[in-house]
Write a protein that binds this DNA or RNA. Structure first.
Lengths: 192, 192
DNA sequence: AAATAACGTTGATTAAAATCAATAGAAAAC
DNA sequence: GTTTTCTATTGATTTTAATCAACGTTATTT
């Protein structure tokens, strides 16, 4: 249940066997069934989740009831409402499971202790945040400057696994457009 | 010339007088005149810039010659092409001065040495990246889910100083729309 | 001080996406 | 195994933003 986490950790930062044992104590495994919430809007995000298995999504719901997907998460990714986690304010979005999933939770207190006690963890955290930042910047640039068709083809190229596993209307939401529009974009791409 | 940097540092992480002296050695001050490049597309981003004074912008230019502003920077902010800085690949965007400005540069080698040698700097970096990440997430969410009018009023509320100092067409570009469109949005807001 | 460039606005037209509505197939629930 | 929900597509219409173009104003240059 912990394999992927430590594999992914070691790809970024060296980790001794003792550190692994120590670190493991701070991790709480949790299984989620499809549609089950990991975090619900209004609650405080009490943990960061590393995804060992499955697929999750983070999304907000507007006044009209429309979902806006902010982030997908697959195996090996980390998902949370970072703002809520860090500030202790209530979450502005929901996180739930798209498929049956397994995650490892790192609680706020665990996170803080690890940052102080284990330099490797501080580095791991910095690298994770940096990676997430760069990915988001790429996405933002794409939304601002790229025409729709390319945006979708870029998405397919970048996340082929998500395209396989996630319903289209969720991808539409992620791209900031309506399911009908995405359907038409796909149609035009196919025509060529 | 270094006041703001250390003030801003101390707001995040405690810093002894010796550490300050040590840290100062790694900083290179640089003055920029309006329109002067800090970084040009194609070059490698060799330094992170802390803005002591003035205003800068990071932007890409598409095939049609349209600028797409990715980030503004004012006093106390940090600006760079982080991807290029970290990977050593050539930058995909430009950074230049909107006004005459003064920045403190932290070179790649300085950054790496400081990360290893000064724990306070590692923490400072982590907090900066986290802050930048959260700000970008907010922006992304706004673009995906908020209608235009609110997007602009949100922007005004969030960055009143930028609205004061930066030409409208740059703000339009930042919001991902044309100057004419922003002008019309403003007109409608004013009518009420 | 004159010339040039940058900026913001307005109008008319075109292009793009949202909305409303209906349908059919696939998956899940009972 | 049937019903119900979820999903993707298509069509017609409305709304929204981009485009093309022109103009007056303010800043910069020289």
């Amino acid at each position: 249940m912990y394999e992927l986490f430590f594999k992914s950790f070691r790809q970024k930062v060296p980790l001794s066997a003792e550190e692994e044992t120590q670190l493991k104590r701070y991790l709480t495994p949790k299984k989620l069934r499809k549609k089950q919430y990991l975090l619900q809007e209004g609650d405080v995000c009490k943990a960061i989740a590393f995804i060992e298995k499955g697929a999750l999504k983070a999304y907000s719901v507007d006044e009209k009831g429309n979902e806006h997907i902010i982030q997908f998460g697959l195996e090996g990714w980390i998902i949370s409402d970072l703002y809520s986690f860090l500030t202790g304010e209530s979450a502005t979005y929901n996180i739930d499971a798209i498929e049956d999933s397994e995650v490892l939770l790192i609680s706020k207190s665990a996170h803080e202790e690890l940052l102080l006690e284990m330099p490797a963890y501080q580095t791991f955290t910095r690298l994770n945040i940096t990676g997430a930042y760069l990915a988001m910047q790429k996405r933002l640039t794409s939304i601002i400057s790229t025409p729709l068709k390319e945006q979708y083809t870029d998405f397919i190229a970048l996340y082929p696994d998500i395209v396989q596993r996630v319903p289209q209307h969720m991808i539409a939401s992620y791209l900031g457009l309506k399911p009908e529009t995405l359907s038409r974009v796909r149609q035009k791409i196919a025509q060529k």
